[in-house]
Amino acid sequence: MAWLLEPFAVPFMQRALLGGTVAAVICAVVGTWVLVRGMAFLGEALAHGMLPGVAVATLAGWPPVLGAAASAAVMSVGVGAVARRARLSSDTAIGLLFAGMLALGVVIVSRSRSFATDLTSILFGDVLAIRTADIALLAGALVVVLAASLVLHRPFLALCFDTRTAAVLGMRPRAAHVAMVLLVATAVVVSYQALGALLVVALLLAPSAATRQWTHRLPPTVALGAVFGAVSVAAGLLLSWHAGTAGGASIALCAVALVALSVAARSVAARSAAVPTRS
């Protein structure tokens, strides 16, 4: 058992485990709505679209999370504005802004000759460098996400299943959609420290996707998704410690592997249930 417990006796591993677990719970709550609503592409676009804001903040010596929040806000507002004014579909607007923001980030980074280390941290995260202040930010974001999900549960549910019915019932689907986008942006912004802009989508989608193999009810999906996310974080940190691999990438890999294991286990369970028992 030493191989399992020894790594987490080190303070920075303890902070990484705690911060990563809180991020996993945030992503489980938001990721459930993302999957039900079909907003995976938006989540990916928000994560990748953070690059210019984080790059500018890093170059200016500001907290990177402020730049990430600014970029996420531009993406969130811009998608709706472009879709309405240019008469484009939402997916097209997201794709255009995603490509534009990512290109802008690369241009900003390319103008700096001493950005290699910071860029790696931005893109792939540095979960082992999580500080107490980062954990406090994650904890505050978790409270906000949980409160918003509870208060807006009925509008979100109506929005996910029937927009017209939501409007008839006075649920204000447009406002609910904006609130859901803001929740996705919040989860992406506060979680990128652990996995980085490129890999945060794995923590947002994979645990909830694994959970959907076993249940389609929302509360169990959120709860089991949080457990799967926490397991992915712990397994990824252990892999990073023993194999000397990057922490964020290891967590993302374990999260995606968990989906594959859930699909395989569900398939085996279904085949077993289909085999008639002999009397």
Rank of each mutant, 00 (worst) to 15 (best):
A99R: 06
R84W: 13
M171G: 00
S112D: 15
L238F: 10
P276M: 05
D126M: 08
L203M: 15
A72Y: 02
P63Y: 08
F124H: 07
A246P: 11
G244L: 14
A28Y: 06
V65N: 00
A235H: 08
T21H: 00
S250G: 09
A249P: 04
G225T: 07
A209Q: 06
G100V: 06
F98E: 01
G19Y: 03
P11I: 02
M101K: 01
P64R: 08
A28V: 08
V74C: 12
A68G: 15
L18K: 00
S191N: 09
V82Y: 07
V65A: 10
A269D: 12
S240K: 04
T211S: 14
V79L: 08
L203Y: 10
T221E: 13
A72M: 04
A210F: 06
D134W: 05
W62L: 14
A264W: 12
G67D: 10
A136D: 14
F8D: 05
Q14N: 05
V190G: 04
G20D: 04
A243C: 12
G20P: 01
V231N: 05
A23T: 12
T58W: 10
S240W: 06
V275I: 11
G125V: 09
A260M: 11
F12K: 03
L198T: 05
A249E: 08
L4Q: 05
G100A: 13
L238P: 06
M1C: 03
A230Y: 09
L253E: 02
M50D: 00
P155K: 10
V145Y: 05
G229R: 09
A9Y: 00
V36R: 11
F41E: 00
L169E: 13
T132R: 14
T277V: 07
A148V: 15
Q14R: 15
V22R: 00
R85W: 15
P219E: 04
R15T: 05
A158N: 07
L102R: 02
A83K: 14
V127M: 15
E44N: 12
M13F: 15
L150Y: 11
E6M: 04
M180P: 00
A83I: 07
V29Q: 02
V36A: 10
V188H: 01
R271I: 01
L237I: 11
L128A: 11
G95E: 10
S262G: 05
A209N: 06
A209K: 02
G105F: 04
L88E: 04
P219S: 05
I135L: 15
W33F: 15
R266K: 14
L253N: 01
H242A: 09
L238A: 08
V54W: 03
T32F: 05
T92C: 09
V144L: 15
A257T: 12
A99V: 13
L204P: 01
E44M: 11
A257R: 02
V200I: 13
G78L: 09
V227A: 13
M13P: 01
G20Q: 02
H242W: 15
W33A: 09
V233M: 04
Y192C: 08
P52E: 12
L42N: 00
M39S: 07
V227K: 02
Q193P: 00
F156S: 05
I122H: 02
D162Y: 10
L203K: 07
A185T: 03
G248H: 12
